[in-house]
Amino acid sequence: MQPPVKYTLRIFWQKKGNSKYVSHLDTQRAVVRALIRSGLPLYYSQGFNPHPKLVFALPVSIFQEALYDVFDIDITERISPKRAAEMLGAVMPGDTPVIGAAYPVKKFKELYAASYLISLDTDLKAAEVEKALRGEVVVEKKSKKKCEMTDISPMIYGVSAVDTDRGVILKATLSAAPDAYLNPKYLVDFLGDKVRFSETVREMLFDKEMQPLK
């Protein structure tokens, strides 16, 4: 019944504004509906309950924004990425715009790092934040199985901070490899009670050559 051919198309999009309050699961369902609305020639899984194929590179956590986010979909015709981006872009929710599409160059497992902009509402100075995060950073880190004190400094590739009139803006590049993803919230956790509030924007996803993931 299904055409045997399928092509994987990569969609570049943003998750910003109020969409940061939406969990990944809810985002996924919203994207599936948008895919259906778009009229793209979707490839459906061959099963009892057919559904469009949709794989996210690295979903941001709820409360975090992403300016360069990526998901792959499967389609049955090799249509122009520009056209696909237009079709999907026209029907995505306002705070989750499509910024481009392309046939994938790299695999998701080649994902290596991500850069973040974290606004900290704090009395700490930029220098203090930098100093703290450039040493040993031991936090209580949750994994699927356990929760233990871990030094995450090997997963911090770079931090820099600047003072602003409202606190500190922290720029961080963190590991985003499939087996060593570091959620930026651990940096904020580490700084502790001195941070009253924080807002995190993921700016970019990088491959092993530190090039934007294409």
Binding site: Y21, I62, V91, P93, F197, E199
Partner: peptide, 27 residues
Amino acid sequence: MNTERIKHLLAKVEKPGRYTGGEYGEL
């Protein structure tokens, strides 16, 4: 809607997406 004035509240509650509007098709 602009959620700036409630962002501190939203950080503390379950399913904050219920309180922000901005859904697809919003009028």
